[in-house]
Design a protein around this nucleic acid. Structure first.
Length: 537
RNA sequence: GGGCCGGUAGCUCAGUAGGUAGAGCAUGUGCCUUUUAAGCACAGGGUCGCGGGUUCGAGUCCCGCCCGGCUCACCA
């Protein structure tokens, strides 16, 4: 009886978590058919109306409709034209979803929405075939129609289509959200994103801008000779990041596989093979908590460029971000929460400098302090000086990095795949990009010495044996690939979701992912209602 | 996983002190040929997230559970 989620979760427990029998499930919901809820009522009305539409000779689920314009095109092209300018008749043929209807006896107005924008149509009895006016009178909010007519301005000045022919293209059986407040229930917005997109044009805009960001990055990489590749998402060994994986199973091979936590090790194998500039934009999966900044599947751009190093990537990253901001928003300045974040330039600080600069509280350290292992270990509970420095940076610096900032030179302990800094073996040539208080990207000069890589993996295995579940595993094939010689290479990953958050002023990562991960919803009960309607025909 | 907040009509929300469950939009019927949150009249629509308890009586108080949001922890 309830077609929308957000209530009656008990059934969900029953069917999803306890494997109840059909009889148990039925007995839990004994009242279901004794009530005639409003929504069942609406469903019945609309099913009946579907048959009436058919009786008038229209197909309730329509057919091809070749429009002359999309609604946004008309608004752009004719939005500024006066009534006099429109007097020279402009014929249009448009399609869209009916969002409002105002009937006035022998005439009426409606707004038709397409691609997130609305255009008013005016239907009067003496201007359309009799059958079309009968159809107009039985339209429901949410139906999809096509119209032929000409543009005019109403007495109140709104650009509208004076309809001469009405076509029916698709029936809605369920009610669309209310016109004034739209859809605000966050849970329904995420679960039924299609309703969110219909009701909230700003949501559509976020995803349009997300697409522009991705195509901007692709265009920039392609223009510099990078080629796009796809590497395995199901991997027998997972690696390239510190994270816990999702596990799955292949039946025929009878092997467990991991959903990748990063594509890194495969992309570098390709660099070994001579694909000197490669990139991949796709999903990573990490079996960890959810938050406003974390979704278990998220989109990363990773790219590798042979014969450069992390310094080269710093310059390139700054340009990539600047241009992506420009392509998404037409300006390098992004309004994010209460900040104006300017991607025109990117500040650079070493991690040690950042700890000093952003230190909160008394006894601010000196650069010499943060380079002193003993001092570091006194100020953190971590086991090694390197981990202590990272810990202090995360506690003091990270959230203050609002403007785009590169933090460089990381301790070796947390970076098993990066090349050492010459003359400072405790550090590696690595940087991360921060903006809006979030980590956006991570890059380094790739470690290409197979002996050193073997030692790093062994160090990680030691950490794993001491209980670090996220420490890297030994990947012997990767060491073998490096043993054939990988050119000196710089590699980088950029979190597309987070970049999109900043460039679309979205507080939560769920607002930039079309279908963020949620717990499965309870019974929907629509199929049963539809089955009953089918029987009543 | 911890803390805080929320779940009442299709949608957006009220709900007083524990005493017969409300509004606007949407829906149905009638009127209305340039309206625009169109208007007027009448009508229908609720397992108050689920279960248990206290009580003569629970949307309201207590306990447990489900779902969501924020936040902390972990992470990018």
């Amino acid at each position: 009886m309830l077609l929308l989620p957000s209530r009656d979760r008990q059934g969900a427990v029953c069917c999803c978590y306890r494997a109840a029998t059909a009889r148990e499930r039925f007995s839990l919901r004994p009242h279901r058919r004794f009530y005639l809820s409003l929504e069942d009522d609406l469903l019945k009305q609309r099913a009946a109306r579907t048959r009436e539409i058919e009786a008038l000779g229209y197909r309730p689920y329509g057919q091809r409709f070749d429009a002359t314009h999309a609604v946004p095109d008309i608004l752009r092209e004719y939005g500024a034209k006066t009534a006099e300018e429109l007097a020279a008749r402009v014929d249009v043929r448009i399609a869209g979803r009916v969002m409002t209807i105002r009937h006035m006896g022998k005439a009426g107005f409606a707004h038709v929405q397409q691609n997130g924008e609305k255009l008013q149509i005016y239907v009067r009895k003496d201007a359309v075939p009799e059958r079309d006016f009968a159809l107009f009178k039985m339209l429901d909010l949410g139906d999809i129609v096509g119209v032929d007519g000409y543009l005019f301005r109403t007495r109140t000045g709104e650009l509208s289509v004076h309809v001469e022919k009405l076509e029916f293209l698709s029936k809605t059986l369920l009610s669309i959200p209310e016109k004034w407040h739209g859809l605000e229930d966050v849970e329904i917005r995420y679960r039924q994103r299609y309703l969110d997109l219909i009701a909230n044009p700003a949501v559509r805009d976020v995803f349009v801008r997300r697409a522009r960001i991705i195509s901007s990055l692709r265009r920039q990489l392609e223009s510099r000779g990078f080629i796009e590749v796809e590497t395995p998402m199901m991997q027998p060994l997972y690696g390239g990041a510190a994270a816990r994986p999702f596990v799955t199973h292949h039946n025929t091979l009878d092997v467990d596989l991991y959903l990748r936590i990063a594509p890194e090790l495969y992309l570098k194998r390709l660099v070994v093979g001579g694909l000197e500039r490669v990139y991949e934009i796709n999903r990573n999966f990490r079996n960890e908590g959810l938050s406003t900044h974390h979704n278990p599947e998220f989109t990363m751009l990773e790219f590798y460029q042979a014969y450069t190093d992390y310094r080269g990537l710093m310059d390139f990253s700054a340009e990539l971000l600047r241009q992506a901001a420009l392509d998404a928003n037409g300006t390098t300045v992004a309004e994010f929460e209460e900040h104006k974040i300017d991607f025109a330039s990117v500040r650079r600080l070493s991690m040690r400098e950042a700890v000093v600069e952003f230190w909160t509280g008394a006894d601010k350290p000196s650069i010499d302090n943060v380079a002193d292992p003993e001092w570091l270990l006194r100020h953190s509970s971590k086991a090694t000086a390197g981990e202590a420095l990272t810990d202090l940076f995360e506690r003091h610096g990270e959230e203050k990095l609002i403007q785009p900032t590169i933090i460089y030179d990381y301790p070796v302990e947390t970076s098993p795949l990066s090349k050492n800094k010459p003359g400072d073996p405790a550090f590696v040539e690595r940087f991360e990009i921060y903006a809006g208080g979030m980590e956006l990207g991570n890059a380094y000069t790739e470690l290409n010495d197979p002996q050193e890589q073997r030692r790093r993996f062994e160090m990680q295995i030691g950490m794993r044996q001491r209980g670090d579940q996220e420490a890297h595993q030994m990947d012997e094939d990767y060491v073998r690939a490096l043993s054939y010689g990988m050119p000196p290479t710089g590699g980088e990953g950029i979190g597309i979701d987070r970049l999109t958050m900043i460039l679309t002023n979205s507080r939560s990562i769920r607002d930039v992912i079309l279908f963020p991960l949620l717990r499965p919803e309870g019974p929907i009960d629509l199929v049963q209602s539809l089955r009953e309607l089918d029987g009543e025909k």
